[in-house]
Design a protein around this nucleic acid. Structure first.
Lengths: 234, 234
DNA sequence: TGGGATTTGTTCGTATGTATT
DNA sequence: GAATACATACGAACAAATCCC
């Protein structure tokens, strides 16, 4: 039923998910153009379905749609990045408040297993996987609240944060995140709301600072210009 | 630029806004079927554009899309309603924290003018306008934060709350809201964060607690949309 | 149960607008 | 600055699924 409501059984949904993953995993970089033709061709559907997927992604802020000009992977500014982190922090506080002292044993098990996976990825040094897993940890927490809207918003903000990290984050930016995740779990299990909130604030603050204080990674100049050209009235 | 990014200059955007308003103002009731044909016909566009608008609305949770079955105005359950209010509360707390003690004089003027308009609508007894204005007050506050994501999320949750009120709220449910809005402004201007937060919590809690009766009666989609058509220049 | 009517899913052609030379 | 090339906006039509009697 959840599948149904989200249109996950549809072909358009498949296109949407393909694109979404490509963007989040940074296979498609911020500012990259997303022509309907190319997407449809590559994914074996017509422009119509590609378009629908792009509309959905634009709704989440992962894609920017410019009338008569086409779709581009979102290229958030630093200010937008700060905004997203601020909202995400507020949302994750809600998650903490909903979960503190209420985690079932099997949920704790799942969380710990996830952190273990994060540790493994970190040890292997596979940056891309680490970024993905770090995001998934927060998504996993949100999911445990059972609050559909909260889940959607956390997923969205987490995705956008990974875009922001791609643009402005330093390499190895998720280094100490694993231990921070572990501490959050501990505080949640212990039922210590204040500590859990503080930890989450600190954790996200740390992630943000690592991201926004770092220098921009080198994006493709052409795409960047394409994305910014119109805004300057050129 | 904001217009552009949202696709507000497009005809699809116009269809989207028409439908959105019709839903929020409860001219289209929760659960109502939204056939692509009928929408396109009444709004003078083809199914393609109707479809795009529906996809966007589904992204906001105002419309439910069922594969091979069509689109319906969302019919949230009571539990979903509580979830939405919970998230909305968290978001509006962020708004308060961003604005407290920082409102510029002209912003205060705008807010007061808005509340005056609310009062006027309440005096006239025009329920539909009251509902719209009450929501817009919160949207206006969010807008003043300048945080694009926060604005979007508040708009979305406010819209969905009006759906929920349509389903589970009592008539005249926005009666005392006006004075509560006024108090929030006062607290914001006074820079009293705790009081502003308490007021907002109480305000939203009060709105939520007015969850009781539902109502019947199903107006014709075509008639409803005809009224919304002009304003979008279709 | 079945079959026609209705609605959705999808493709693709044309017109329009944008970028490039 | 005009012509050309290309991508998008929109719609018409066909295929497939669902609904309804």
């Amino acid at each position: 039923m959840a599948d149904e409501a989200k249109g996950n059984g549809t072909r358009a949904g498949a296109v949407y998910r393909s694109l979404r993953r490509a963007i989040i995993e940074q296979a498609l970089r911020p500012g990259a153009k997303l022509p309907e033709d190319a997407i449809g061709e590559r994914l074996g559907v017509s422009r119509t379905l590609a378009r629908e997927a792009l509309v959905r992604l634009a709704g989440e802020g992962l894609v920017e749609l410019r009338p008569n000009r086409g779709a581009f992977v979102a290229y958030p500014t630093l200010e937008e990045g700060r905004d997203v982190f601020m909202v995400r922090n507020g949302l994750e506080r809600l998650v903490i408040q909903a979960l503190v002292g209420r985690l079932a044993p099997d949920q704790v098990t799942r969380l710990k297993a996830h952190v273990a996976a994060e540790e493994k990825a970190a040890a292997k040094g596979s940056e891309r996987e680490s970024i993905r897993l770090a995001g998934e940890f927060h998504a996993l927490l949100a999911e445990m609240t059972g609050n559909g809207l909260l889940i959607r918003y956390v997923n969205e903000t987490v995705s956008r944060c990974s875009l922001i990290l791609a643009l402005y984050g330093r390499p190895h930016s998720s280094e100490c995140a694993v231990s921070e995740h572990r501490e959050v779990i501990q505080a949640l299990v212990a039922g210590d709301e204040r500590r859990a909130l503080d930890l989450m604030d600190h954790h996200l603050g740390a992630v943000m600072n690592r991201a926004l204080l770092g220098r921009p990674a080198e994006p493709d100049l052409r795409d960047v210009l394409a994305a910014y050209r119109r805004e300057e009235g050129l």
